[in-house]
Design a protein around this nucleic acid. Structure first.
Lengths: 110, 110
DNA sequence: TTCTATTATCGTAATATTGCAATGTAACAA
DNA sequence: TTGTTACATTGCAATATTACGATAATAGAA
């Protein structure tokens, strides 16, 4: 069906998968890494940095923005994007809790 | 196109997005959480635990196995799945490096 | 105002994902 | 051998994602 049955999962599970989905495309990973590296906000040179067409980058930026991981402010004719540090931190908390689960015994059992 | 242009990204970026894709569906998150919780390996009761049909669970398990995050061994007529602790750890290293990027200034710039 | 630069949005094609019924397969039980 | 149980695979329908050309929309420059 292509439609995930989110209603049968917990809010936490849906939150984890939503954040993970944001990172599930290398272009979005590259965008986030670039926004971090050039702390001073980057605008549309993401299009030059990454080898994708402008509408494609714009679409990826939109998804990241909707999740709250980045924010953008209009500056004249261009738009300045950067990491939303606060939301990034709370995303990290959720992801860390998931990734840091540890088995009682420190070995695989099969 | 529905096809990610992986060739224009670094191996690291592709690795991050591949792992993230594994977590991008709540059913796979739930499977991994359950495998962790019941450290002693779980088999097909994942189908009962999670409310999806057996072929669907089997398919999600296959994806997780192909990524190396879980492993399964046949035990008579059933299959015992569990986390591959070693691979989980190296996945964590990669994801942590990505998630732990920190901006120089601890505030958003726009 | 007109032109230009920058970004967003629309529309669409190609491909991927999700889910499940039906069916196959392999191990064990009777 | 004949069931039965537990999974895996196949095939398909519904939906989502990715990518980009074409085209808006907006701000500033001339």
């Amino acid at each position: 069906m292509g439609l995930a049955k989110t209603e049968i999962f917990t809010d936490e599970q849906n939150a984890i998968s939503a954040f993970a989905k944001a990172f599930s495309h290398p272009a979005r990973v590259a965008i986030l890494q670039h926004l971090y590296k050039t702390n001073t906000c980057v605008c549309g040179d993401l299009v030059n940095e990454i080898g994708l067409a402008q509408p494609t980058i714009s679409q990826h930026l939109k998804e990241l923005k909707q999740l709250g991981l980045i924010q953008g402010t209009v500056e004249g004719t261009s738009v300045c994007y950067c990491i939303n540090v606060e939301n990034w931190q709370s995303m990290k908390n959720i992801m860390f809790q998931f990734l840091n689960q540890d088995v009682v015994e420190n070995s695989s059992c099969c």
